[in-house]
């Protein structure tokens, strides 16, 4: 068990599970912020989701050991998609 707790992959998995449960509590029809705080909850939920994607990429897909160029492409791509999604959600884009 101590070995397991020293394993980075396992720890990352624990963290992913924890934040998933957290975001399930924040968002959705019966979430903490169901009354009146929808936008804030959505920003939080999507932010958490993209943080999880980054965790999966860097640890499970081993992007952390990749050349700098790939790391930058992944990070820029994730931030760009998150920004577009939030902007569309908040109706900031003239679509």
């Amino acid at each position: 068990m101590t070995n397991l707790l020293r394993d980075r992959l396992f720890l990352v998995w624990l963290l992913l599970i924890a934040v998933t449960l957290l975001s399930a509590m924040i968002g959705g029809a019966h979430g903490f912020a169901a009354a009146g705080h929808g936008a804030a909850a959505t920003f939080a939920v999507l932010g958490i989701a993209f943080a999880k994607v980054w965790l999966v990429m860097s640890n499970f897909m081993d992007v952390r050991g990749a050349p700098r160029a790939l790391k930058i492409v992944c990070a820029v791509w994730l931030l760009a998609v998150l920004a577009i999604l939030l902007a569309v959600y908040a109706q900031l884009l003239p679509l």
Binding site: G27, A29, G31, A34, A39, V45, V53, M57, F60, Y89
Partner: peptide, 19 residues
Amino acid sequence: WHMVDLLWIIIFPLLYLVE
């Protein structure tokens, strides 16, 4: 496979959690 996982990581909040 990790990509299949991370797509679902985004689909889940979009469909089930966005308010």
